[in-house]
Design a protein around this nucleic acid. Sequence first.
DNA 1: CTGAAAGCGCTTACAG
DNA 2: CTGAAAGCGCTTACAG
Lengths: 358, 358
Amino acid sequence: MTKKVSIKDIAKELELSITTVSFVINGKSEEMGISEATSNKVLELIKKRDYSPNNAARLLRTGKSNTIGLIVEDLGNYFFGNIAKVVELEASKRGYNVFLSSTDNNPNTAKALIRKMRNSSVDGMIITPTKELNQELEDLKNDKIPFVLLDRTVPGLSANAVVLDNFKGAFDLTVHLLNNGYQKIGFVSIHSDMSQMIERERGYFDAMESSNKSCTKELVLKVKFDDSAACIISSIMSFVRDNPDMEALFFATNYLGVHGIEALKQVGKSMPDDLAVVCFDDNDLFRLFTPSITVSSQPIKQIAVETIELLLRLVENGIKHESPINKVLEPELIERQSSIQKPLWEIEQTLKKSFNKI
Amino acid sequence: MTKKVSIKDIAKELELSITTVSFVINGKSEEMGISEATSNKVLELIKKRDYSPNNAARLLRTGKSNTIGLIVEDLGNYFFGNIAKVVELEASKRGYNVFLSSTDNNPNTAKALIRKMRNSSVDGMIITPTKELNQELEDLKNDKIPFVLLDRTVPGLSANAVVLDNFKGAFDLTVHLLNNGYQKIGFVSIHSDMSQMIERERGYFDAMESSNKSCTKELVLKVKFDDSAACIISSIMSFVRDNPDMEALFFATNYLGVHGIEALKQVGKSMPDDLAVVCFDDNDLFRLFTPSITVSSQPIKQIAVETIELLLRLVENGIKHESPINKVLEPELIERQSSIQKPLWEIEQTLKKSFNKI
DNA sequence: CTGAAAGCGCTTACAG
DNA sequence: CTGAAAGCGCTTACAG
């Protein structure tokens, strides 16, 4: 394997023209009317010499790189790490390589990545958008470079996307709390105009409003995405202290949930007795917490598979001038212990108070 | 940006030869004695036209792809996901792309990946080896393709590697348990002849032997890497039931720890009262468990940075005929609640028993 | 059925 | 100081 064999070597050894060999390699034997005997000879020698075509030369000639770009928010996080794994696996099955990168939600990083991937002539890209990306994505569309948005859409941009039904996830989670007897529910989220966060917030508010219980109370805390962990934790601690009548906490993202649980530990509140807890987006270990954490879980594998399949369809069939495709997948409510039905004694107490009023 | 500009376009617009433009682009103006005026004109137009050289053409001509391959065990796991993130970031800073893949510890997958990356002409690779990879890695060496092993070495192969001091990590963890009063310590690991697992086991046994307490007892459970989660959990449950006098459990990997904790929940043993627990390799959330889990933690960022730096040094300076470089990094013992000093009452009981004997 | 040749966009001896 | 030209390894009209 010291020196890579080229198509020329194969042709020479077989005393055929390069053209013929190339046709066989690209499965055009039949179409080009190459005899089966010739074809088989070529195939055999290719295997014997362990020949594989030079991707760079091919790309230079055809413009097809058989590489796609995958831009996620944070490879180190459970959701995106597993998305990346599945995307890579599926792409690999179909003969594609994948370039992988994290934006950490920084628009400048995202812009640079898109630029870099374009320069690397990827055949298409999967993009977890940050904000301020409208121009770059419009350029991609104009230049007919296929891409699929992952996890969230971009306001004002019509593009292919695979997302979760964030509204439903948040709505169900809130209703679950209400049904289990929690009425004063705090919603902890980040300041963001990205679609998935807006939808989750809307789900929370809609569920709260649709509950006709009068003592329901909406309480919202928003932190900044790039605040430090310590800062987020202390914000949540204050939020909890400032709202002593709060009965439950809804964390709008996985990492907020993690910080939130840490905050509750620090203020000495226990779940679910002092405060019930639910979280959007599961984490590998939430099921092992004490108590285990109720979540709205994303079908990670399905998201990844749908996304890569959609992208490769666009790559291989070209972009039709249809309107963009939007896949919306269903989250799953996983009820665990952190939000079990409000203990009976509490209900009794409430009843007593009502009695006293009468 | 509809049509990509080429070096020819730039040359034509400036009425220069392609050669001159190429020299400027590659920073050889000075060396080749190109006037500063010309040089600046070129640089300006390049910026204006947003020109960037075609990587494929460059690779075809020079053989340098500015791409490295990263092969990990499992992108979806906390350790490797974060390794990948940092490697990608550092590589990016230095102008390299990275191809990323998971082996799931399957030798055939690993072989196919190495092959694929070679065909993609990567400049070098970072490889988390599986077993049976000796031939492929020897080939890489013979063909002077730089690579660095990550996380573990391969028996019988002398190669560049960045690994953890697994022996020390396991030794310290065991000593920590012994010091805190636990003597019958069970070691849960996988059947594996990979270096990191062997070292961890050696660390455990050495620590146990060096303890001169007579009632110290060694207990070992090994499961298969590709056993299902359910299967591993039930093995651990049996192990715990069959050894009622066991006082502590040492999990040799992160995911074994996770399964182990689940198993303990199921048999109704509580940590650390019934069984103390320590785990090799931290997990993002172990600190938030009840009780929090004592671990030997790997310096993920440092591992990633050292690895990519070593690889790029090899890629850029060529492989010297020195002996391979082996970086061994230090794990950190993080003492948490799952292994706190054996409760006083237990010690008292032991004392009483001793008294009775007298 | 098969071959000679152009050309993808670069880099780099070679020549002035 | 600068240019004409070869060649990296492919694919694909075009010609027989």
